[in-house]
Design a binder for these strands. Structure first.
Length: 225
DNA sequence: GCGACAG
DNA sequence: ATCTTGTCGC
C-alpha cells in the first residue's frame, strides 16, 4: 500500500467513526501505549485495565510483534495498531473504554490511532496526545482543568486540556463511540495528580518497562511470573 | 519555497 | 519513539 492509498483508506474509514456516546456503564478503563525494543525492530504494546472510577489496576498484557513499518507523520496507527490489537486480545478483564496515547479525530484525515484502534476493536476509545499533530487553539491558562477548543477551519477536532499546572497540555479527541464532551470528562476523571491519566501512566510504564513497572504490576495482581 | 510534523 | 546528564521544585 502506498502513502496515497493509505490516506484514501483513512479518509474512508473516518466516515465509520461514531462520534456520539455509544457505550455501557464504564466500570473498567484501559490505557494503551506502544514502545520499541531491539533497536526499533520489535514493537511492544501494553494495555493496562483499571477499575473506574477507583483507578485500581485490574489486569495488563504486553504483546511483541516485528515492527512492520517506519514512523510517518499521519500514518502512525498503521505502525502501532497490529501490536495493540494483539495485546487487547490477551486481556482477561475486558475494558469498557480505551485511552490511547496519541490523537483520535484530531488528525489531518480525522483518523488517528485512537480511531484506528477503536474501530478495529469495536471498543469505545479516546485519543490523548502529548503533542499536537494538527489544528490551532487559543492560549491556554496555566491553571489545572483549563480547556480550549482545538480547531481546523470551522471544525472542532478536539480539546486542549491542562491536566496539571505548569506542564504542557493534553490533546484530547474522539476515538470511537464517544462524544468529545464525554471524552474530556473521562480523561479528567482518570487523573490522579499527574500530567497523564492513570491508565496511560501504567501502559506507558509497561510499554517501556521504566522503573520496573512490570514487576510492580505483577506484585499488585499477585502474579508469580 | 518555508515551516510543521502524534509516537 | 529512544538515548542520556543535569537541574528545578514540592
Amino acid at each position: 500500500m502506498t502513502v496515497a492509498q493509505a490516506h484514501d483508506w483513512q479518509q474512508a474509514m473516518a466516515e465509520r467513526i461514531v462520534c456520539h456516546d455509544d457505550m455501557n456503564d464504564v466500570r473498567t478503563i484501559a490505557g494503551v501505549d506502544v514502545g520499541f525494543e531491539e533497536n526499533g525492530t520489535v514493537t511492544r504494546s501494553a494495555v493496562a485495565v483499571l477499575a473506574f472510577p477507583q483507578l485500581q489496576l485490574l489486569d495488563f498484557t504486553i504483546a511483541r510483534l516485528p515492527t512492520c513499518m517506519p514512523y510517518i507523520p499521519g500514518l502512525l496507527s498503521f505502525r502501532e495498531t497490529p501490536a495493540v490489537l494483539a495485546a487487547l486480545q490477551q486481556l482477561t478483564v475486558k475494558p469498557d473504554l480505551l485511552l490511547c496515547d496519541g490523537q483520535g479525530r484530531a488528525h489531518p484525515r480525522r483518523f488517528g490511532v485512537a480511531c484506528h484502534v477503536g474501530l478495529l476493536s469495536g471498543i469505545p476509545a479516546i485519543g490523548v496526545g502529548k503533542q499536537k499533530l494538527c489544528g490551532e487553539h487559543d492560549v491556554l491558562p496555566d491553571e489545572k482543568n483549563s480547556v480550549v477548543a482545538l480547531t481546523e477551519g470551522q471544525e472542532t477536532i478536539g480539546t486542549v486540556l491542562r491536566s496539571r499546572r505548569g506542564v504542557k497540555p493534553l490533546y484530547v479527541s474522539i476515538g470511537h463511540r464517544v462524544s468529545l464532551t464525554s471524552a474530556v470528562h473521562f480523561v479528567q476523571q482518570s487523573l490522579a495528580g499527574f500530567k497523564l491519566p492513570e491508565p496511560i501512566r501504567w501502559a506507558d510504564g509497561l510499554a517501556s518497562n521504566r522503573g520496573k513497572t512490570v514487576e510492580k504490576a505483577n506484585h499488585i495482581l499477585g502474579r508469580t511470573s
